[in-house]
Amino acid sequence: MIPVSLTDVGSYLPAHSVDTSFYTGDEAPPADGVMFGPPARRRHAAPHETATHMAVEAARPVLERRRALGEDRVDVVLTNVALPDRAFTGAGADIVARLGLDPVPEWIIDVHNSGCASFVYLMKLGRSLIASGQARTALICCVQNMAGQLFARPEVRGRKHAAVPGDGCGVGFLSAGDASPVLDLVTYHGVEYANDMTLAVDTRKYWEPGEGEIDIGFTESRVKQIVARGNRLVPQVTSELCARLDTPTSDIDVLITNQPNRMFLSNWHTELGLKPERHLDTFDQYGNLFGAGIPVTLAQARDEGRITKGDLLVLSGFAHAGDFAAAAAVRW
C-alpha cells in the first residue's frame, strides 16, 4: 500500500470577534463545567464570508507552499460544511473553480455527515484514494459557518447553547509518501443516534415559510445522553487507535480533538492519562468550531512550534449527538 502523509494544514478565521455579552447581556454566563459554558470569545462570519470564501482563503497559502515544493496538482477535493450554503452542488465545485485548480480534480466529494470529526473522516477517504493509487494528493476543507448565521439571530442568541460556537475553516493536504505519515485511523458510526440532534422549527420543514427561527433541537434528556456519549467516545476511539499501534495512550505527544467545551476537553485527557499541556485547547479563543476545530487547532500549533518532528500526533473527535467518532495517528 502506498504510504500517505499529512503534509500541510492551514486555517481561516473571520475578522469579527464577539465576546459573550453579545449573547448574555448583563447576565452572568453559565458555569464553566456545564455543556454550554461559553468561550471567552468567538469569531462570526460576515455576510460575504460564505463557506467557499472561507475554504479558499484557508487553502490558498497551503497550495502556494505545496507548489513551491513541486506539488502543483490536486487530485482530490473533500469538503464538509456545517451549514451548506450551496444547496444543490455542495461547496466543492465552487472551491475548485475559485482556486483555479487545473486540471479539475477527478474527485470532488462533499461529505455532509461526520460533523465535528469530519477532518479525520475526510483524511480516511483521501488516504484510501491515494493509497489505492487513484490519486497522489488531496485537499481537505472543513468549514464551520453556523455561529454568525444561525446562532446570532435575535430569537436564538439568548439561548444558552448559542454562545458556544464560533466560525472558521481548517484545511489539510495529503500527499503520497512518508514525509509525515498517517499511521492509522479508526472510525465509529453510532447510527442509532442519528436522529438525536435535529433542527427545531416548530412543525414545519426547515425550508418552509414560518414565523419561528431555526435552531438546534436540544432537550434536557438528550443533553445528558450526549454528555455521556461524548465523554465515552473520544477516549474509546483514541484508545482503540493506540491499541492498534501497540502504543499506550500516555505516549501520545500531542492530542488534538474537536473543541466542544471545557468539560469534555478536561475529561478526555484525564481519561487518556495525558497531562493537560499535551491536549491542545483553542476553545476560549474560537469557541466550538465543529469540524474546523481539529485542523484550526493543528495549524495554530504548527505555527506556534508546539509540534516537533517525530511527535506522535493524534487527532480525535466525536460528532453531533454521538452518531460518529474518529481518531487518526500521524508521525509528524
Rank of each mutant, 00 (worst) to 15 (best):
M123N: 07
L129Y: 10
A97R: 07
I109L: 15
G148R: 08
I140K: 00
P103E: 07
S132I: 03
L139F: 02
A82H: 07
A147D: 05
C116K: 02
A179N: 07
E155A: 15
L78F: 13
D178C: 04
I130K: 09
C142V: 14
V164D: 05
T137G: 06
G172E: 06
P103S: 09
L78Y: 12
A163F: 13
A82Q: 04
L139S: 03
R153I: 07
G100C: 07
P165V: 08
V156L: 06
C142S: 11
D85I: 08
G166E: 10
G172R: 06
H161F: 15
A179G: 13
Q144V: 03
N80L: 05
K124C: 09
G92T: 01
G115M: 06
D94V: 11
A93M: 04
C116H: 13
I95A: 04
G177K: 08
V171C: 10
G115E: 09
S128W: 01
D110Y: 00
L101F: 10
C116R: 13
V96Y: 03
V164I: 13
D85M: 11
A138M: 05
C169D: 08
G115Q: 11
R86K: 14
M123S: 10
D75V: 13
L101T: 02
A91P: 01
P105G: 10
N80M: 02
N80F: 05
N113T: 13
L150I: 13
V104M: 07
L174Y: 08
D102G: 03
V81C: 14
A138P: 02
L83S: 11
R86L: 10
A176Q: 14
I95Q: 00
V76N: 09
I140C: 04
K160W: 04
D75G: 14
N80K: 03
I109Y: 07
P105T: 08
A138K: 02
A97L: 02
V182H: 01
I108T: 12
M123R: 09
P154S: 03
G168A: 12
A162W: 05
A131V: 06
C169A: 14
G166D: 09
D75A: 13
V77N: 05
T137N: 08
A152N: 12
V156N: 07
F151Q: 00
V111T: 14
G133C: 12
Y121R: 11
V76W: 03
A179E: 15
G166T: 08
S175L: 15
R98G: 02
M146G: 03
S175G: 10
A162I: 04
Q134H: 13
I140A: 01
R127S: 15
G90E: 00
A138Y: 04
V111Y: 01
C141M: 03
P181G: 06
A147F: 00
D102I: 02
V156A: 05
G170N: 08
G177Y: 11
L122V: 10
G133F: 13
